[in-house]
């Protein structure tokens, strides 16, 4: 049970700046996901919180205690690693018991905790095995059990599902969510997988170029991206962007159509592919590729020479070369400042 505060944390590796003065507060028992492409600084931030990396500047507070000068073992955290880091020379039991033994806990309590977490992760039948005898999914369970057995204030997870195959990942995702919700710990979870982020998070921090671009709940991040990057990173297919020219105060012309928009010098028009529907009047789109996906059809077009995608009902089957008119749902249109790349209005 702990609030985590990150105050102006920065990290340089030589000339490369991995983090630019990051501020973030994570509430007690919150499930926070750090989401971004590789190299965005999310893992560095997690490792700084864990104490595996020393920040160049800034402070890290866990549970009201400043910890950035403390070694990992004194921070009250537990961590699940990308490659699981299950000790190969110890049995599953001893792996889970490792941290408890370091705390000099008595044997009865160790056994009790190991058994309980093993049951929780459904690995009670594997306790005598070595890591070499386990599948990837089983190792993953051991790694999580080992972290949970510590009953830590904070659990840190570094891409824990990325080495599992797709089906197993789906299963583990649901299970993790359940287990962690019951454990009452604060969780920080690093991933590059937006679906994973959406499904697990109470709040998502989208990171790019060593900065947190937006920290908000999944729906907010999806619906109201705070920056052009968030819109283009989240959503599959991502948000569409079109250039707009001002035609009056708060009036913008986009591909021959006029829309209400912000009072600004310049703006870019944006809309998600699923917020479009065919209409008599709308953005004129020349169809390039049509991909039927079952529940709906993905249509790739060009609008005024710019790439533009739409997710349409599967009953609609335009052909390449057709020109169709696509109307955006009015309250789903978003506007971005081309200079700062941030959301307008």
């Amino acid at each position: 049970m702990a609030v985590i505060e990150i105050k102006q944390v920065a990290k340089n590796f030589g000339a490369f700046t991995a983090l630019h003065s990051v501020d973030l507060t994570i509430a007690d028992q919150e499930f926070m996901v750090l989401l971004g492409a590789s190299g965005c600084g999310k893992t560095t931030l997690l490792r700084i919180i864990a104490g595996l990396e020393t920040p160049t500047a800034g402070e890290v507070w866990i549970g009201g205690r400043r910890v950035d000068h403390l070694p990992p073992r004194e921070r009250g955290i537990a961590m699940v690693f990308q490659n699981y880091a299950v000790f190969p020379h110890l049995t599953v039991f001893e792996n889970i018991a490792f941290g408890l033994r370091m705390k000099k806990m008595d044997q009865a309590e160790v056994t009790r905790r190991v058994t309980r977490t093993a049951e929780l992760m459904h690995i009670e039948q594997l306790l005598k095995r070595y890591s070499g005898e386990l599948s990837g999914g089983q190792r993953q369970r051991v790694a999580v059990a080992r972290a949970l057995a510590m009953e830590p204030d904070v659990i840190l997870m570094d891409e824990p599902l990325s080495n599992l195959d797709a089906l197993l990942r789906l299963e583990m995702r649901a299970e993790l969510k359940g287990v962690l919700a019951e454990s009452n710990t604060t969780t920080i979870y690093v991933t590059h997988d937006q679906v994973e982020a959406m499904s697990l998070a109470d709040r998502i921090s989208v990171m790019n170029g060593g900065r947190i671009v937006q920290a908000a709940n999944p729906v907010e991040v999806y619906r109201n991206p705070a920056a052009r990057f968030v819109g283009s990173f989240i959503g599959n297919p991502p948000m569409n962007f079109l250039t707009a020219t001002p035609v009056g105060p708060g009036k913008w012309q986009v591909a021959g159509q006029t829309y209400d928009g912000p009072h600004a010098q310049a703006a870019e028009f944006a809309v998600r592919p699923e917020d479009l529907h065919p209409a008599d009047h709308g953005l004129p789109a020349e169809v390039r590729v049509v991909e039927p996906l079952g529940p709906h059809t993905l249509v790739t077009t060009t609008v005024a020479g710019q790439p533009f995608r739409a997710v349409l009902e599967s009953t609609l089957m335009p052909r390449p070369g057709d020109v169709i008119h696509l109307a955006p749902v009015p309250d789903r249109i978003r506007w971005f400042d081309p200079a700062t790349q941030t959301a307008l209005c």
């Binding site: 073992r73 190969p88 370091m102």
Partner: peptide
Amino acid sequence: ELEEAAWTLG
């Protein structure tokens, strides 16, 4: 990672 895991485990 194994060493880091040991550090986080006390």
